[in-house]
């Protein structure tokens, strides 16, 4: 029993970490622009297809993975430049609908230009192997996911606290006009936020695909929906909250799958969401709410 708990905890940390990275990407953009980017999932899909094409071209995984992350970051910056900059000062609803439109357009492009169905992605064999720790086995892909999540969280913490651009992003999230008064360029800081969120989506996509070895046009939809739930659960706009919400959701899902009695298993999604709703009833602003909800946005 203890082994099983330990095993499932590792699975939960691996899955929760991926949710946390995605939720962080949503939260970074939201905290600065006041917009939920529903096209975040399509950034993941772009990463997935980059991995697929690299695999077909025989590019080794150690090179294709950074390329896939770069592709998502680049796509995020382009998305901002083309679609979101023109509606930057519009209402939250306008921005939200714009992001839905971007997501829909990209999904249709994937379906028509690449493939309607799921395509296999070549993943190095070593990722599907396991390492034995005493009595139980841990998948290398799980270890990779956990290690990558930790590395990304440390990087992000360093970036936001130690670099000028990172500090400017936090300031812009709190009071955009005053950040501009300090000389922070709106375009630069918003483009930076998108690049960062795209990078996080790219990393999450590499981890996601390396567990599943396939990519389809709607690949990003479900994980980003989960990440959105995680971001709300953690406290929308709060970065620490996004991480907490991501891990929490990972734990809820994995533990329910592992420990629910068999006849209840098909209800695991509604039960999981029910737990989320209960937690939100208990803490309506999320686990770790953002300091300045509803502060002035650009």
């Amino acid at each position: 029993m203890l082994d099983l708990i330990l095993q499932q905890t590792i699975n939960a940390v691996a899955l929760g970490g991926t949710y946390a990275l995605l939720a962080l990407g949503l939260a970074i953009v939201f905290s600065i622009m006041g917009m939920i980017n529903f096209a975040h999932g399509e950034l993941m899909t772009i990463s997935g297809y980059t991995l697929m094409y690299c695999g077909l071209a025989g590019v080794p995984f150690v090179i294709s993975a950074p390329l896939a992350i770069l592709a998502a970051a680049g796509a995020a910056v382009m998305m901002e430049r083309v679609a979101f900059r023109p509606v930057r000062n519009a209402s939250a609803a306008t921005m939200l609908v714009t992001s839905f439109a971007v997501a829909a357009i990209l999904q249709i492009l994937f379906q028509n230009l690449i493939a309607k169905r799921s395509k296999p992605v070549m993943i190095p064999d070593v990722l599907s192997e396991s390492i034995a720790f005493g009595d139980f086995l841990i998948g290398i892909n799980k270890l990779l996911a956990i290690a990558t999540t930790i590395a990304m969280l440390l990087f992000l913490n360093w970036f936001l606290k130690r670099t000028d651009v990172g500090i400017a992003m936090r300031a812009a999230a709190e009071d955009f006009p005053i950040a501009q008064l300090m000389g922070v360029q709106a375009n630069a800081v918003i483009a930076g936020a998108f690049a960062l969120s795209g990078m996080l989506a790219g990393v999450a996509a590499v981890l996601w695909v390396s567990q599943r070895a396939s990519v389809d046009p709607l690949m990003g939809f479900v994980p980003v929906l989960k990440a959105f739930i995680a971001a709300i659960l953690g406290g929308l706009g709060s970065l620490t909250g996004a991480v907490a919400g991501g891990f929490m959701l990972g734990f809820i899902e994995i533990y329910l799958t592992a420990f629910l009695p068999e006849h209840l298993l098909e209800f695991k999604e509604p039960i999981g969401l029910g737990i989320v709703v209960l937690m939100l009833l208990w803490r309506p602003n999320g686990l770790i709410p953002a300091a300045a909800i509803g502060s002035q946005k650009v």
């Binding site: 000028d164 500090i167 400017a168 936090r170 300031a171 709190e174 009071d175 005053i178 950040a179 501009q180 008064l181 300090m182 000389g183 922070v184 360029q185 709106a186 300091a291 300045a292």
Partner: peptide, 29 residues
């Protein structure tokens, strides 16, 4: 964002310091 580089700046009404940033980070900004 350009004006401050020309040498004109404002200490705004109500102070509007960045409350979630440290004192040093506020100055750095």
């Amino acid at each position: 964002e350009v004006l401050v580089r020309r040498g004109i700046t404002l200490s705004p009404e109500g102070r509007r310091i960045f409350a979630s940033l440290s004192v040093a980070e506020n100055l750095r900004l």
